[in-house]
Design a protein around this nucleic acid. Structure first.
Lengths: 341, 341
DNA sequence: GTTTTATATTAAAACGTTTCGATAATTAAT
DNA sequence: ATTAATTATCGAAACGTTTTAATATAAAAC
């Protein structure tokens, strides 16, 4: 618990040399390096982070901002993304500061304190986030990346899930297991992810030509709100009003799927016998629902890790043009489509 | 984006004076204070955190440590506790550094980096946590508090839920709604919380004399592992082997209750008609399960806030003897006991 | 055996605050 | 009108690093 000066004295060198070995920079004779290392260990020396950061003019912190409701409510999704970032951060010397912002966001008053006080080197915006916030960061030239979201009309650095192909593989799975009237239940297309998932759904069906445009429309339910189990309940109820019941539902995410399952249960409709259900995300609950949910697994930790890497690149030097990195998904087959692996 | 020197120059005073108004300390004439404030605003000045922390010899960070599996798995519980701390931190100038530790923990190798590098002023340990970790903190004299946990044989500062009374009220509710054979399903008593909940359960039943000791034993299922839906499934299956089925189950937490519900569903046993189910915690899912779960609501945000406050007191000056603060719970009646409010 | 180049070490300045003690100016007390 | 107490301001040291530029030594090149 001493200072660099104590180490220098003990090792019989200058503090500059100690600093050099601390950061392995420059040239230092192996023997003296060893002496210094010994001194460090004997005195159990830890360099002061504040002093370091002061000298290097960096914060060593990166911000992680998420919508209040996304963190607060059912979703486990972004917590995992956060954890992925945290894992990555462990190998660097930075800390991740997690905070939330409200849905109604005014940069004048609602700015996370680490932005207000300039305490981060960069920021990750997880999921849907107020556009004003991104604009603010852009104006202030604070490096940032979007994670699992993008802002229409803007080209920002971002890490995205391969929503299109993920949805595609899910629907393909349904078709291959014999389903022919496949519904879609989703929330607001404001989330580009959901929009993409719908596109994957639609184009897969078109490709296999199992339904025509008119049918697709009748078996599509979209409510323009944040996703929730409630949307699922509503959605499946709506789809069931068709003359022919759907024999499968592709839900825009697991949360929605939970609602669908609940409603089907209530109506005593058998899953997967009568209707197969597929979700997206693979939230922890997906493995515990009854029946266990077939879903498109999103590697959330990877998402976080990639976000961290990209953000650090951006902090180093702004990427021009902005990059989008795509993370692949995998289909996890469980009871709800009856083809468990 | 200047320094304190720029402000001093602009306001025509010394940096000492600027520092005084920055920290409202000492005496400074109202007019000069105003001049300084103006300068600060005009230059949009933000004091450097590193410089500050260097000068004051503090970190301004507090650590939040949670078991990997608790954060990682189904539980939303501790994320909320974290959020409660984060809210509280917003009004101070500290940041919460969230990290996880593995179940098998060796202080030699697995120490969170903010401990290894001395980057926090104190630590909150959320839920069950390796005892070695608490011992390490104690030895190193790093201020810490336990949240929703305590370590047998040790008296540490902690914030606890009123598990006993919470369980008591839940069971009382069951009794008052006519139930007479009430089962208990729980995980390891290693968690003092669970132990306390069991005590609340047991003593309430004894108080109302609806079951004798022998019966209580037959209607109690405890598995010595971390709680999970799986325990619930197993537990209720076991209780159902009694000659007389239970007419209610008190689960040690909602996660367990989810498993119970799933299993009862599978067996076509009606909730609450045949068997009422009560959980503990009020995780978000509790409101979305089918049926919606009656549960003992734990004010997680409050828990976090209190932990933050207590920790800061401890950082200021070590409390002797250590304190335990108890947070009250409330019973939320929903469909699963058929007496929804 | 010089000159060049590469290796090794250091003194000193800089990073941007807080705080102590000294001093000055004002107000209150005698 | 002094003295004492209070209010106001400031210079300078301290906090613990990194980094630049200078210097010293050793190795390589000629």
């Amino acid at each position: 618990m001493g200072t660099i000066r104590d180490i220098a004295k003990k090792a019989g060198v200058s503090i500059s040399t100690v600093s050099l070995v601390l950061n392995n920079k420059g040239y230092v004779k192996p023997e003296t390096r060893q002496k210094i290392i010994n001194a460090i260990q004997e005195l159990n020396y830890k360099p002061s982070r504040s002093a370091r950061k002061l000298a290097t003019r960096t914060n060593g912190n990166i911000g992680f901002i998420i919508w209040e409701s996304h963190f607060y409510e059912v979703e486990m999704f972004y917590s995992q993304v956060f954890l992925g970032m945290e894992y990555a951060a462990r190998r660097s010397d930075s800390y991740i500061l997690l905070t939330t912002v409200k849905e109604e966001f005014d940069p004048k008053t609602d700015l996370p304190r680490f932005l207000k006080y300039n305490d981060v080197d960069g920021v990750a915006l997880a999921g849907r986030v107020p556009h004003e916030l991104a604009l603010y960061l852009e104006n202030e030239r604070i490096p940032f990346v979007l994670v699992d979201y993008n802002i229409p009309g803007k080209k920002y650095n971002s890490v995205q899930i391969d929503n299109y192909n993920g949805a595609n593989s899910a629907v393909q799975h349904l078709i291959e297991s014999g389903r022919r009237r496949i519904g879609f239940v989703g929330g607001t297309f404001f989330h580009s992810s959901i929009k993409e998932r719908y596109r994957g759904f639609k184009e897969c069906i078109e490709h296999y030509q199992i339904m025509d445009a008119d049918q697709i429309a009748r078996y599509t339910f979209v409510e323009d709100t944040e996703t929730s189990p409630a949307i699922g309940e509503k959605g499946i109820s709506s789809l069931l009003k068709n003359d022919q019941k759907p024999d499968a539902v592709f839900c825009c995410n697991d949360t929605t799927a939970m609602g669908v399952i609940k409603e089907l249960h209530k109506r005593q409709i058998k899953i997967p016998d009568d209707i197969a259900v597929v979700g997206f995300d693979d939230i922890p609950n997906a493995a515990y629902s009854a029946p266990r949910l077939t879903t498109v697994k999103v590697p959330k930790l990877v998402l976080g890790k990639e976000a961290f890497n990209l953000l650090n690149e951006v902090i180093e030097n702004p990427l021009e043009p902005p990059q989008t990195r795509i993370i692949a998904t995998t289909l996890v087959k469980r009871e709800s489509t009856g083809v468990e692996e």
